[in-house]
Each structure stands twice: as C-alpha cells, then as structure tokens.
Amino acid sequence: MRLDINTVKGEKRLFVGGNLITISSVIINMVSVIIPTYNREHLIQESIYSVLNQTYKDLELIIVDDGSTDNTEDIVRAIPDPRIQYYKLPHSGRNAISKNFAIRRSTGTLIAFNDSDDTWVNTKLEKQVELLAQHPNIGFSITDATNYRTGQIISTRTYAVQQGIEYANIFNRMKENRFVVYNPTILMRRSCLDITGLFDETMPYGAEFHFNILLAFYFDAGIIYEPLLWRLIHGSNDSIQTPVENLEGFMNTFEYLYNNNMVSKKYLNKAKSHAYRQIGHLFKQAGNGNAAHHNYRQSLKYNLLQPICYWLLLKTYRPDQLSPAGN
C-alpha cells in the first residue's frame, strides 16, 4: 500500500492507497517530549540538551515550569531551538498538573517524559521509536537506567537482565513489587491515553507510579535492556516527607486497583505491608523511633509472616532507638 505525507498550508495530508486523509491536530511520527520542572536552574540545561541532541530529530520539547523562583526560565529561553515550547504555571507542587498541561498541548503520535534533573543517552528515542514501529501491538517502551549521585555511580543497571529486548505485559511483576518503571524511560503511543486517561491530579505524590501501572495493566511493553537514562539520585540528607508521601501514594494506587477489580485483596495487603515497612525504615533512619514502631506494627497488620519486621519492631523499644520527641 502506498503511503505519502505532504504538507499543504501547514496542514498534514496523508495519502493511503491514493485516498486523502487530512490530519490537522496530530503529527505523524513526531515525538512529544515533556519535561516538568521547578527551580532546576543548575540541572535543566543538561536535561534539555540530552533531548535536543537525540539521533531521532522529529520531536517537540514541551517544558512546563511549576512557578520556578530561580533562573530556570532565563536558561530555557536562551536555548535557540525552535522545537522548544516553554510554559510557566502558578506553583502547584504537582507534576501531574504540569504533565497533563503539556499533554494537552502536544501534537505527536508518540509521547515521552523526562525529568529536569535526568538525562538521556542520545540513541534512546531512535531505538524506542523503531521498536514501536516494528511492533504495532505494543503500547509503550521502557529502558534500563543508570542511577548516580554527583560524581558517583550508584548502580549501572536497574534490571537483572543485561541485554536484549523483551516484549511482555509487566503488570503482574509491578503489582508484586518485582519490577520498577521509571517514568523518564517511557515512550508511549498517544492512543494509550484513550484508555488510561491522564495523570491523576488529585495525588500530590505517587501520580507517576499510578499512571505507569495503569499503562502496564492495559498494554504490553517493549523493554530495552540497555541503560538509556541517567537518573540523578539526590542527597540522602533530604527531608523524608517526599519518600513517605510517595509510599502513601503507592498504597492509594493499590486501593484504586483493588476497588476496580484489577488486583485481589492479597496484593492490596502485600502493597500496604511493603509500604508501611519502608516508611518505618525511613523514620528509623531519621531517629524517630515511635513513628518507626507504629509503621512496623502497621506492616505486620497486613502481613504477619515477616520475621525481620518483628526484629525491627523490637529494636524500636530500645531507648537508644527513640527520638527525644518520642519519649
């Protein structure tokens, strides 16, 4: 079948078998790359150029600034590339709002996400676009990632598999907490949004995991077992508020999955047990023994078969494990 694309007066016209189909709002083969940002003047330029320097050039880059108070805007506007669109919104503190704003203004048939502190290997999009083009039954593609702190690589790989490509539904692995998906590795078909919907803007934290697991529930993935994302891990001295709220968002997602008959009560309980245990660890590391004790008890409430959790719970009874505020 003959397929030709012509542009007439700025309008895409697709000829399939000699028949004319006009496409006014969605541009065929273009990737819409979305970067939300907030006060990342020291990092965002590297992230932007890692997108602009991709070997796959047919892209638009939509940057949504969540009301930065630093020089982020000046840095973005100084980059002379017509593929960049920059929008500045009032500060909300919710990436979901920024991402949905960008999605609504995007024009590509493929959508990718990056974070303003992460960078891509320059062949990332090319490899993923080719994969999706060759496998029309797959909804999205993900890749492996390298995790690092400034000047130090923490892990060169995320997945145990070292090479190759896998085509699979990864939902069961995700619901069992055996598989992580980093949102900046995703390249997805725009049509997936007709099923998943947009990001949940009611979730202050955890909206990315919520979106990722819905995507995995409804669509098969093409997994490229090659680290094509450099993911920056911030200092361990940061407030524990964000990781705790992310874990609370994780539990809220499993409540949603359970209420919509997507997982059984067994997996809801496993998710809650895991999240409360991790929250307990965070409070223990912060020296708040009472909060750690409470969360370890909550973890055991949802899964009694955790010998290590009993041991951790007993340790919170020791005076040297309790914070002064908890006495």
Rank of each mutant, 00 (worst) to 15 (best):
Phe113Thr: 05
Arg189Asn: 11
Asn327Lys: 14
Asn114Pro: 02
Asn269Glu: 12
Gly206Trp: 10
Lys124Met: 15
Phe219His: 06
Ile23Leu: 12
Phe283Leu: 01
Asp58Ile: 06
Arg297Phe: 02
Phe217Ala: 09
Arg318Asn: 10
Gln152Thr: 13
Trp120Phe: 15
Ser68Thr: 04
Pro324Gly: 08
Thr202Tyr: 07
Asn95Gln: 14
Glu73Phe: 01
Ala207Arg: 02
Val64Glu: 04
Thr55Glu: 11
Asp115Cys: 07
Lys99Asp: 01
Phe209Met: 14
Ala112Pro: 01
Met188Leu: 15
Thr156Leu: 08
Gly17His: 05
Ile153Leu: 04
Gly93Met: 10
Gln162Glu: 13
Ser141Val: 02
Ile28Ser: 14
Val16Cys: 04
Leu215Glu: 09
Lys99Trp: 00
Asp65Ser: 02
Leu132Arg: 01
Arg94Cys: 11
Tyr256Pro: 03
Ile23Gln: 15
Ala325Ser: 12
Ile5Gly: 08
Thr196Asn: 03
Gly67Met: 09
His281Gln: 07
Leu110Met: 14
Asp74Ala: 14
Arg149Trp: 01
Asn39Cys: 12
Pro324Ser: 10
Ile35Thr: 08
Glu248Tyr: 03
Asp81Phe: 03
Asp70Trp: 06
Ser50Thr: 09
Met203His: 11
Asn246Cys: 13
Leu132Met: 10
Glu226Pro: 05
Gln306Asp: 08
Gly151Ala: 06
Ile79Met: 05
Cys192Lys: 03
Ile240Tyr: 08
Gly289Ala: 02
Val31Glu: 04
Thr69Lys: 15
Val31Met: 06
Leu268Tyr: 11
Leu282Pro: 02
Tyr218Val: 03
Ser98Pro: 04
Leu322Ser: 12
Ile213Pro: 07
Ile308Leu: 00
Asp115Trp: 02
Ala292Val: 04
Arg231Gln: 12
Ser155Thr: 14
Leu110Lys: 11
Val121Gln: 10
Asp238Met: 13
Ile48Val: 15
Gly67Tyr: 05
His274Glu: 06
Thr158Cys: 10
Lys99Cys: 12
His42Trp: 06
Leu314Tyr: 11
Gln128Tyr: 05
Asp220Trp: 04
Ile103Thr: 06
Ile48Met: 02
Pro80Ser: 08
Ile308Gln: 11
Ala133Ile: 03
Thr316Ser: 13
Gln162Ile: 10
Gln321Gly: 11
Thr109His: 03
Asn261Leu: 07
Thr196Arg: 07
Ile233Lys: 13
Val33Ile: 12
Gln45Pro: 00
Asn183Tyr: 06
Leu125Gln: 04
Gln134Ile: 03
Gly108His: 04
Val64Lys: 07
Ala221Gln: 02
Leu300Phe: 08
His91Thr: 09
Asn169Lys: 08
Leu52Pro: 06
Ser116Gly: 15
Pro319Tyr: 12
Glu73Tyr: 02
Asn183Gln: 13
Leu193Thr: 03
Asn183Trp: 00
Glu226Thr: 08
Glu208Val: 00
Val8His: 06
Asn95Pro: 03
Lys270Ile: 01
Ser155Ala: 13
Asn53Asp: 15
Trp120Ala: 08
Phe254Trp: 13
His293Tyr: 09
Phe199Met: 11
Ile28Gln: 14
Arg77Cys: 08
Asn172Gly: 01
Asp220Met: 08
Thr253Glu: 09
Thr7Gly: 00
Ser47Phe: 09
Val244Cys: 09
Gly164Tyr: 05
Pro319Cys: 05
Tyr218Arg: 04
Phe140Val: 03
Pro243Tyr: 09
Lys124Val: 10
